[in-house]
Design a protein around this nucleic acid. Structure first.
Lengths: 336, 336
DNA sequence: GTGAAAGCGCTAACAA
DNA sequence: TTGTTAGCGCTTTCAC
């Protein structure tokens, strides 16, 4: 807990190298238009003094911060506790690091926090924002817009329809769901049920839509609502079994839900995949590989989503980027 | 993706309120020693202009940043993917927010990243650092020390023994383990096995030590090594069952491991808790409550650990704090 | 190609 | 109590 020693300044480096501050600054920022010999001398001095530029001073004049805010609404939720989010964060971190940007994490849980975040963004501390897990009617986008901070959303915001200039990165949830259901049909199954995610999230709605795209005239009783948790998967599976004992396949909105469903199926003596085939979504490894039997599922490249969000944002600091939908792939294991 | 409009400065507010910049500055920073009437007028102007202080300018002169780095070594690891870490992060975030500090997240994965982090810390961008999941011989502590940044560690670093001034927050792993084993003995069990965590982490070693504190003369074959994953729990349980078929209880180093063990016990037709009682560690809710049967386990208050780390760090900016060991509590469910 | 000098927006002596 | 002033450490014209 020592007090930080005073760091050497540009001035000090300049003195040591026998040049002006301006020259040192040039070298530190790439060294264009400086004689090779001087560059070398300055580099030397920087090295010897252990000089590191003072970011505050630099920001003050450049108005850039080389920092990006990652805003996560309601970390209470699964969204945050999930390995899912951790992976996206990793992708983001990697990309930001590669471009020498810092990651400022803003977790919000409620009204008051929104104004805090708004103030922070308005304060111009960061060059952009990456925003996750918005609700319907979340005041955050409004705040962000007012703050005038370039933003990329994680997952398609439900209010983005028709609005211009909303940039997001999402998986092809609908297409992935279609693939899953088609795979089930390809196996000869005919009574394919679906356990949805929470229908106030676009990813869940999109997966349901994908299911319906393929199961055009499906019995509505084949659809039960879940919320992406294992518990909801159990509940929904029981419901489905009671309503439609004849079902021969289940497409669950994510792997956790599928895991719950598997448990209930086993409880009821249904063999998987012989009696009932099951497909999940996410390919969350610790889950999908550990289930009994291992889960056939739709994989999305989560880390890549994060990386891409950061890339779009950074690029967008120059030219306006547009949204990206990442493809999914079906991963076959034993459950279907 | 609009360009951010130029923000109003202190100067502008001063002009509008008809006072000097100094007075505005005083008001913005608490308003002590300024006539009430003026305070009001300045507040008014601030409001009208939507003034937000420029943090870079402020840092430049105060040398404070109101920002704390959270450094996570090797996010590949469980450490990062676990809900565990997410919860600590939440605790940290809450505490920092309450003190108007920002959270800068630094994820590192290997040698090159270390120098990057070192440079960042040396650059004096943050007032302190919170550091997680160090390895043996990790170069990070060295770098941090050299950077002279106040630091609090999450979990006792293995190299902290004997060193002065190393501040950390940890759970009472050893005490919790003792409680768990004593509970099993209290149930009348006599052949209590232990599945360890990865023994290069102090938390795992401490839990093993706690087990040994109580099972002083235990058959060494009753201990099998795991790594905190469910898979390792399965493996270790099989091993134990083969070596000591007569065991009547298992203390697993964490809940995930316990979940794996439960699966194998069921596979082998051992009833839990009738034939074999099982206790876990962590009380990770999505896991501990979902197992079959629900898990008796040692709870640690993870979010509180995070909060405390931040609190110690912030406080330490004034006076040197010392490490804290948080108590654990045994949570009884059905498995023991 | 290099240096001198102005100034980014703010705080903190110091004067008044 | 309030204002004046001098920087904090850096980048960036603008001369040379």
């Amino acid at each position: 807990m020592t007090d930080t020693a005073p760091r050497p300044t540009l001035e000090a480096v300049a003195a040591r190298a026998g040049v002006s501050r301006a020259t040192v600054s040039r070298v530190v920022n790439g060294g264009d238009g400086v004689r090779e010999a001087l560059v070398e001398r300055v580099r030397q001095a920087v090295e010897e003094l252990g000089y590191v530029p003072n970011q505050a001073a630099r920001s003050l004049v450049t108005k850039r911060h080389d920092a990006v805010a990652v805003i996560v609404a309601e970390p209470e939720s699964r969204v945050f506790a999930d390995p899912f989010f951790a992976r996206q964060l990793r992708g983001i971190s990697k990309e930001l690091t590669a471009h020498d940007n810092q990651l400022v994490l803003l977790l919000t849980e409620g009204r008051d926090d929104h104004t805090r975040v708004g103030r922070y963004l308005a304060g111009g501390h960061v060059d952009g924002a990456l925003v996750f897990s918005l609700h319907l009617n979340d005041p955050l986008p409004e705040l962000i817009q007012r703050a005038g901070v370039p933003t990329v959303f994680g997952g398609r915001p439900d209010w983005s329809r028709g609005r211009d200039g909303v940039v997001y990165v999402d998986s092809d949830n609908r297409g992935g769901a279609r693939d899953a259901v088609r795979h089930l049909l390809g196996l000869g199954r005919t009574r394919v049920a679906h356990i949805t995610g929470p229908l106030d999230q676009t990813s869940a709605v999109d997966r349901l839509d994908g299911y319906r795209d393929v199961m055009v005239d499906a019995d509505p009783r084949l659809v039960a609502e879940g919320d992406f948790t294992a518990g909801s998967g159990e509940r929904a599976m029981r419901e489905l079994l009671a309503r439609c004992p004849g079902l021969d396949a289940v497409f669950a909105a994510n792997d956790l839900t599928a895991a719950g469903a598997l448990r209930v199926l086993r409880e009821h003596g249904r063999r998987v995949p012989d009696d009932v085939a099951v497909v999940g979504f996410d390919d969350m490894l610790p889950v999908a590989e550990q289930t009994e039997p291992p889960l056939t599922t739709v994989r999305q490249d989560i880390e890549e989503m994060g990386r891409l969000m950061a890339r779009l944002l950074l690029r967008g600091l120059d030219r306006a980027p547009s949204s990206v939908i990442l493809p999914t792939t079906l991963v076959r294991r034993a459950s279907a």
